[in-house]
């Protein structure tokens, strides 16, 4: 039961974008950590990341009739 609730909660967080920053950090660790171009900057902080993520999300047709 608890397992299902947890899966459900993860799905809700994923769908709403609540965990977007955590996923970004994961992606960063996986792909850019040993990448020289990014080395000096480090990952964005939560607020900066959220700004970019939100602005980009609304660029284009996202809602229908």
């Amino acid at each position: 039961m608890l397992k299902y609730l947890k899966t459900f909660w993860r799905a809700v967080r994923r769908l709403s974008g609540d965990d977007a920053y955590e996923r970004y950090l994961e992606h960063y660790a996986r792909c850019h950590l040993h990448d020289d171009a990014h080395e000096c900057e480090g990952p964005l902080n939560r607020a900066e990341f959220f700004k970019q993520w939100q602005d980009q999300k609304w660029n284009g047709i996202k809602r229908c009739c």
Binding site: R13, S16, G17, D18, A20, R46, A47, F50
Partner: peptide
Amino acid sequence: SIRPGRVL
């Protein structure tokens, strides 16, 4: 601004 990214 208050709690950035806490969408839920």
